[in-house]
Nucleic acid binder design. Structure first.
Lengths: 147, 147
DNA sequence: GTTGGTGCAAACGCTTTGCATCCAT
DNA sequence: ATGGATGCAAAGCGTTTGCACCAAC
Protein backbone atom coordinates (compact mmCIF):
# COMPACT_ATOMS: atom_id res chain seq x y z
CA UNK A 1 0.00 0.00 0.00
CA UNK A 2 1.50 3.26 -1.01
CA UNK A 3 1.29 6.45 0.94
CA UNK A 4 -1.02 8.94 -0.62
CA UNK A 5 0.77 11.97 -1.96
CA UNK A 6 0.14 15.17 -0.10
CA UNK A 7 1.65 14.55 3.29
CA UNK A 8 5.12 13.45 2.51
CA UNK A 9 7.02 16.12 4.40
CA UNK A 10 6.19 17.46 7.79
CA UNK A 11 7.21 20.99 8.66
CA UNK A 12 10.49 19.89 10.26
CA UNK A 13 11.51 18.07 7.13
CA UNK A 14 10.56 21.06 5.05
CA UNK A 15 12.74 23.40 7.04
CA UNK A 16 15.62 20.99 6.61
CA UNK A 17 15.06 20.78 2.88
CA UNK A 18 15.22 24.54 2.58
CA UNK A 19 18.18 24.95 4.89
CA UNK A 20 20.20 22.28 3.13
CA UNK A 21 20.40 24.63 0.19
CA UNK A 22 20.73 27.84 2.20
CA UNK A 23 17.23 28.82 1.27
CA UNK A 24 14.89 30.45 3.69
CA UNK A 25 11.73 28.85 4.88
CA UNK A 26 9.34 31.73 4.34
CA UNK A 27 5.58 31.92 4.88
CA UNK A 28 5.10 32.70 1.22
CA UNK A 29 6.91 29.59 0.06
CA UNK A 30 5.05 27.46 2.55
CA UNK A 31 1.75 28.98 1.47
CA UNK A 32 2.36 28.13 -2.16
CA UNK A 33 3.19 24.57 -1.27
CA UNK A 34 0.21 24.28 1.05
CA UNK A 35 -2.21 25.51 -1.57
CA UNK A 36 -0.92 22.88 -3.97
CA UNK A 37 -1.11 20.12 -1.40
CA UNK A 38 -4.62 21.00 -0.35
CA UNK A 39 -5.89 21.28 -3.87
CA UNK A 40 -4.40 18.06 -5.18
CA UNK A 41 -4.83 19.43 -8.68
CA UNK A 42 -2.75 21.16 -11.23
CA UNK A 43 -3.17 24.85 -10.68
CA UNK A 44 -2.36 27.65 -13.05
CA UNK A 45 -0.21 30.47 -11.79
CA UNK A 46 -3.21 32.77 -11.62
CA UNK A 47 -5.24 30.34 -9.60
CA UNK A 48 -2.29 29.77 -7.30
CA UNK A 49 -1.83 33.48 -6.91
CA UNK A 50 -5.47 33.88 -6.02
CA UNK A 51 -5.44 31.10 -3.42
CA UNK A 52 -2.13 32.18 -1.94
CA UNK A 53 -3.45 35.71 -1.53
CA UNK A 54 -6.45 34.29 0.33
CA UNK A 55 -4.16 32.43 2.66
CA UNK A 56 -1.55 35.12 2.98
CA UNK A 57 -2.87 38.49 1.83
CA UNK A 58 -0.33 40.84 0.41
CA UNK A 59 1.69 38.18 -1.34
CA UNK A 60 2.86 39.44 -4.69
CA UNK A 61 2.53 37.64 -7.97
CA UNK A 62 6.27 37.84 -8.53
CA UNK A 63 6.78 36.04 -5.26
CA UNK A 64 4.54 33.22 -6.41
CA UNK A 65 6.65 32.87 -9.52
CA UNK A 66 9.84 32.89 -7.49
CA UNK A 67 8.48 30.46 -4.93
CA UNK A 68 7.46 28.01 -7.62
CA UNK A 69 10.88 28.19 -9.19
CA UNK A 70 12.47 27.46 -5.83
CA UNK A 71 10.07 24.66 -4.97
CA UNK A 72 10.67 23.07 -8.33
CA UNK A 73 14.43 23.18 -7.78
CA UNK A 74 13.88 21.42 -4.49
CA UNK A 75 11.79 18.76 -6.19
CA UNK A 76 8.75 19.61 -4.13
CA UNK A 77 6.52 20.62 -6.98
CA UNK A 78 6.29 19.62 -10.63
CA UNK A 79 5.63 21.87 -13.55
CA UNK A 80 3.34 20.78 -16.30
CA UNK A 81 2.29 21.99 -19.70
CA UNK A 82 -1.44 21.82 -20.07
CA UNK A 83 -2.89 21.32 -23.50
CA UNK A 84 -3.68 24.98 -24.00
CA UNK A 85 -0.04 25.82 -23.47
CA UNK A 86 -0.68 27.19 -20.00
CA UNK A 87 1.86 26.31 -17.34
CA UNK A 88 0.58 24.76 -14.17
CA UNK A 89 2.02 23.19 -11.07
CA UNK A 90 1.27 20.34 -8.69
CA UNK A 91 3.01 18.72 -5.76
CA UNK A 92 5.65 16.35 -7.03
CA UNK A 93 5.04 12.59 -6.86
CA UNK A 94 7.38 10.42 -4.84
CA UNK A 95 9.08 8.21 -7.36
CA UNK A 96 9.39 8.45 -11.08
CA UNK A 97 5.77 8.62 -12.12
CA UNK A 98 3.47 10.46 -14.41
CA UNK A 99 0.30 12.34 -13.65
CA UNK A 100 -3.13 11.66 -14.96
CA UNK A 101 -4.96 14.91 -15.22
CA UNK A 102 -8.73 14.92 -15.40
CA UNK A 103 -9.82 16.99 -18.35
CA UNK A 104 -13.04 17.98 -16.61
CA UNK A 105 -12.10 18.91 -13.07
CA UNK A 106 -8.37 19.34 -13.64
CA UNK A 107 -7.56 17.26 -10.61
CA UNK A 108 -4.56 15.00 -10.56
CA UNK A 109 -6.26 11.65 -10.25
CA UNK A 110 -3.33 9.37 -9.95
CA UNK A 111 0.22 8.89 -10.96
CA UNK A 112 0.73 6.14 -13.47
CA UNK A 113 3.81 4.06 -13.04
CA UNK A 114 6.38 4.80 -15.64
CA UNK A 115 6.22 2.40 -18.58
CA UNK A 116 9.26 3.83 -20.27
CA UNK A 117 12.28 2.21 -18.70
CA UNK A 118 11.70 -0.85 -20.80
CA UNK A 119 11.04 1.13 -23.93
CA UNK A 120 14.14 3.22 -23.39
CA UNK A 121 16.37 0.19 -23.19
CA UNK A 122 14.84 -1.33 -26.26
CA UNK A 123 15.33 1.89 -28.17
CA UNK A 124 18.93 2.20 -27.11
CA UNK A 125 19.60 -1.35 -28.26
CA UNK A 126 17.76 -0.97 -31.54
CA UNK A 127 18.87 2.48 -32.54
CA UNK A 128 21.89 3.43 -30.48
CA UNK A 129 20.12 6.50 -29.18
CA UNK A 130 20.63 6.99 -25.47
CA UNK A 131 17.37 8.11 -23.91
CA UNK A 132 18.14 10.59 -21.18
CA UNK A 133 14.80 11.89 -20.22
CA UNK A 134 11.17 11.95 -21.11
CA UNK A 135 8.06 13.88 -20.55
CA UNK A 136 4.75 12.10 -20.19
CA UNK A 137 1.34 13.22 -19.14
CA UNK A 138 -1.96 11.42 -19.37
CA UNK A 139 -5.28 13.13 -19.79
CA UNK A 140 -8.54 11.45 -19.00
CA UNK A 141 -11.83 11.62 -17.23
CA UNK A 142 -12.10 10.59 -13.62
CA UNK A 143 -14.95 8.46 -12.33
CA UNK A 144 -16.79 11.38 -10.81
CA UNK A 145 -16.67 13.40 -14.00
CA UNK A 146 -17.94 10.48 -16.06
CA UNK A 147 -21.34 10.66 -14.41
CA UNK B 1 9.34 -1.28 -43.92
CA UNK B 2 7.87 2.09 -43.22
CA UNK B 3 8.35 5.12 -45.41
CA UNK B 4 10.61 7.69 -43.90
CA UNK B 5 8.83 10.83 -42.86
CA UNK B 6 9.62 13.88 -44.91
CA UNK B 7 8.25 13.03 -48.30
CA UNK B 8 4.79 11.91 -47.46
CA UNK B 9 2.81 14.41 -49.50
CA UNK B 10 3.63 15.63 -52.96
CA UNK B 11 2.47 19.05 -54.04
CA UNK B 12 -0.75 17.73 -55.60
CA UNK B 13 -1.70 16.04 -52.37
CA UNK B 14 -0.91 19.15 -50.45
CA UNK B 15 -3.18 21.28 -52.58
CA UNK B 16 -5.92 18.75 -52.05
CA UNK B 17 -5.39 18.78 -48.30
CA UNK B 18 -5.74 22.54 -48.20
CA UNK B 19 -8.70 22.66 -50.53
CA UNK B 20 -10.59 20.00 -48.64
CA UNK B 21 -10.94 22.51 -45.84
CA UNK B 22 -11.41 25.57 -48.05
CA UNK B 23 -7.97 26.78 -47.16
CA UNK B 24 -5.69 28.38 -49.67
CA UNK B 25 -2.42 26.91 -50.75
CA UNK B 26 -0.16 29.90 -50.36
CA UNK B 27 3.59 30.22 -50.90
CA UNK B 28 4.02 31.23 -47.27
CA UNK B 29 2.35 28.12 -45.93
CA UNK B 30 4.30 25.94 -48.29
CA UNK B 31 7.52 27.66 -47.29
CA UNK B 32 6.91 27.00 -43.60
CA UNK B 33 6.25 23.35 -44.29
CA UNK B 34 9.26 23.07 -46.58
CA UNK B 35 11.61 24.55 -44.01
CA UNK B 36 10.41 22.01 -41.47
CA UNK B 37 10.73 19.12 -43.89
CA UNK B 38 14.21 20.09 -44.96
CA UNK B 39 15.42 20.60 -41.44
CA UNK B 40 14.08 17.39 -39.96
CA UNK B 41 14.40 18.98 -36.53
CA UNK B 42 12.23 20.79 -34.10
CA UNK B 43 12.50 24.45 -34.88
CA UNK B 44 11.55 27.34 -32.68
CA UNK B 45 9.29 29.98 -34.11
CA UNK B 46 12.18 32.40 -34.39
CA UNK B 47 14.34 29.94 -36.25
CA UNK B 48 11.45 29.13 -38.52
CA UNK B 49 10.81 32.79 -39.14
CA UNK B 50 14.45 33.31 -40.02
CA UNK B 51 14.55 30.39 -42.46
CA UNK B 52 11.21 31.22 -44.02
CA UNK B 53 12.37 34.79 -44.62
CA UNK B 54 15.46 33.39 -46.39
CA UNK B 55 13.27 31.30 -48.62
CA UNK B 56 10.52 33.86 -49.10
CA UNK B 57 11.70 37.34 -48.16
CA UNK B 58 9.04 39.68 -46.88
CA UNK B 59 7.14 37.02 -45.00
CA UNK B 60 5.88 38.40 -41.73
CA UNK B 61 6.25 36.80 -38.36
CA UNK B 62 2.51 36.84 -37.81
CA UNK B 63 2.11 34.85 -40.98
CA UNK B 64 4.48 32.21 -39.68
CA UNK B 65 2.36 31.93 -36.56
CA UNK B 66 -0.81 31.69 -38.58
CA UNK B 67 0.67 29.19 -41.01
CA UNK B 68 1.78 26.94 -38.17
CA UNK B 69 -1.66 27.06 -36.65
CA UNK B 70 -3.19 26.07 -39.95
CA UNK B 71 -0.65 23.33 -40.64
CA UNK B 72 -1.21 21.90 -37.20
CA UNK B 73 -4.97 21.81 -37.78
CA UNK B 74 -4.31 19.90 -40.96
CA UNK B 75 -2.13 17.44 -39.11
CA UNK B 76 0.89 18.31 -41.20
CA UNK B 77 3.05 19.58 -38.39
CA UNK B 78 3.29 18.81 -34.70
CA UNK B 79 3.84 21.25 -31.90
CA UNK B 80 6.16 20.45 -29.07
CA UNK B 81 7.09 21.93 -25.74
CA UNK B 82 10.82 21.93 -25.33
CA UNK B 83 12.27 21.73 -21.85
CA UNK B 84 12.93 25.43 -21.62
CA UNK B 85 9.26 26.11 -22.22
CA UNK B 86 9.85 27.24 -25.78
CA UNK B 87 7.37 26.08 -28.38
CA UNK B 88 8.74 24.40 -31.44
CA UNK B 89 7.39 22.58 -34.44
CA UNK B 90 8.28 19.64 -36.63
CA UNK B 91 6.65 17.77 -39.49
CA UNK B 92 4.07 15.37 -38.11
CA UNK B 93 4.76 11.64 -38.02
CA UNK B 94 2.46 9.27 -39.87
CA UNK B 95 0.76 7.26 -37.19
CA UNK B 96 0.37 7.76 -33.53
CA UNK B 97 3.96 8.09 -32.44
CA UNK B 98 6.22 10.14 -30.25
CA UNK B 99 9.33 12.05 -31.12
CA UNK B 100 12.78 11.52 -29.73
CA UNK B 101 14.53 14.84 -29.66
CA UNK B 102 18.30 14.96 -29.45
CA UNK B 103 19.30 17.23 -26.61
CA UNK B 104 22.50 18.21 -28.38
CA UNK B 105 21.58 18.92 -31.96
CA UNK B 106 17.84 19.28 -31.44
CA UNK B 107 17.11 17.00 -34.34
CA UNK B 108 14.18 14.64 -34.32
CA UNK B 109 15.97 11.35 -34.38
CA UNK B 110 13.11 9.00 -34.60
CA UNK B 111 9.55 8.48 -33.60
CA UNK B 112 9.05 5.86 -30.97
CA UNK B 113 6.06 3.66 -31.31
CA UNK B 114 3.43 4.46 -28.77
CA UNK B 115 3.64 2.22 -25.71
CA UNK B 116 0.56 3.61 -24.09
CA UNK B 117 -2.41 1.85 -25.59
CA UNK B 118 -1.78 -1.10 -23.36
CA UNK B 119 -1.16 1.03 -20.31
CA UNK B 120 -4.32 3.03 -20.94
CA UNK B 121 -6.48 -0.06 -20.99
CA UNK B 122 -4.89 -1.39 -17.87
CA UNK B 123 -5.44 1.89 -16.10
CA UNK B 124 -9.06 2.06 -17.14
CA UNK B 125 -9.66 -1.44 -15.82
CA UNK B 126 -7.79 -0.86 -12.58
CA UNK B 127 -8.97 2.59 -11.72
CA UNK B 128 -12.02 3.38 -13.79
CA UNK B 129 -10.36 6.42 -15.25
CA UNK B 130 -10.87 6.71 -18.96
CA UNK B 131 -7.67 7.83 -20.59
CA UNK B 132 -8.51 10.15 -23.44
CA UNK B 133 -5.20 11.49 -24.47
CA UNK B 134 -1.56 11.70 -23.63
CA UNK B 135 1.49 13.70 -24.28
CA UNK B 136 4.86 12.01 -24.55
CA UNK B 137 8.22 13.17 -25.67
CA UNK B 138 11.58 11.50 -25.32
CA UNK B 139 14.85 13.31 -24.99
CA UNK B 140 18.16 11.68 -25.66
CA UNK B 141 21.44 11.85 -27.44
CA UNK B 142 21.78 10.64 -30.98
CA UNK B 143 24.70 8.52 -32.13
CA UNK B 144 26.49 11.41 -33.77
CA UNK B 145 26.27 13.57 -30.70
CA UNK B 146 27.60 10.81 -28.48
CA UNK B 147 31.02 10.99 -30.11
C1' DG C 1 -15.00 39.08 -58.48
C1' DT C 2 -14.98 36.93 -53.92
C1' DT C 3 -12.96 35.38 -50.02
C1' DG C 4 -9.49 34.16 -47.38
C1' DG C 5 -4.44 35.33 -46.53
C1' DT C 6 -0.78 38.53 -45.77
C1' DG C 7 2.14 42.37 -43.81
C1' DC C 8 2.64 45.73 -40.66
C1' DA C 9 2.27 47.71 -36.27
C1' DA C 10 -0.08 48.15 -32.19
C1' DA C 11 -1.99 45.69 -28.39
C1' DC C 12 -1.97 42.02 -25.12
C1' DG C 13 -0.77 38.89 -21.39
C1' DC C 14 2.44 36.23 -19.06
C1' DT C 15 6.85 36.42 -16.93
C1' DT C 16 11.01 38.60 -15.32
C1' DT C 17 13.71 42.26 -13.26
C1' DG C 18 15.38 46.39 -10.40
C1' DC C 19 15.32 48.24 -6.24
C1' DA C 20 14.15 49.59 -1.63
C1' DT C 21 12.42 47.32 2.33
C1' DC C 22 11.73 43.45 5.29
C1' DC C 23 12.51 39.34 7.88
C1' DA C 24 14.38 34.52 8.67
C1' DT C 25 18.52 33.14 10.31
C1' DA D 1 23.34 42.07 11.98
C1' DT D 2 23.22 40.38 7.40
C1' DG D 3 22.00 38.29 3.27
C1' DG D 4 18.38 36.29 1.13
C1' DA D 5 13.33 37.09 0.15
C1' DT D 6 9.55 40.11 -0.68
C1' DG D 7 6.39 43.71 -2.89
C1' DC D 8 5.70 46.81 -6.16
C1' DA D 9 5.96 48.69 -10.59
C1' DA D 10 8.27 48.88 -14.80
C1' DA D 11 10.36 46.45 -18.45
C1' DG D 12 10.64 42.48 -21.56
C1' DC D 13 9.25 39.17 -24.72
C1' DG D 14 6.50 35.93 -27.20
C1' DT D 15 2.12 35.89 -29.27
C1' DT D 16 -2.23 37.73 -31.03
C1' DT D 17 -5.14 41.09 -33.33
C1' DG D 18 -7.04 44.94 -36.41
C1' DC D 19 -7.02 46.58 -40.68
C1' DA D 20 -5.93 47.81 -45.38
C1' DC D 21 -4.08 45.51 -49.25
C1' DC D 22 -3.17 41.38 -52.03
C1' DA D 23 -3.53 36.95 -54.20
C1' DA D 24 -5.59 32.28 -54.69
C1' DC D 25 -9.51 30.53 -56.18
Amino acid sequence: MKTKSGGRENSEDLRAIFHAKRLKCTPQRLAVLKVLKESGAYLSINMLDKKVKEMLPGTGLATVYRALETLEELGLVAKVHLEDGCHSYAVAPEGHMHPIVCTECNKVIDFAECPLGELSEKLTQDTGIVIQNHFLQLFGKCRECQA
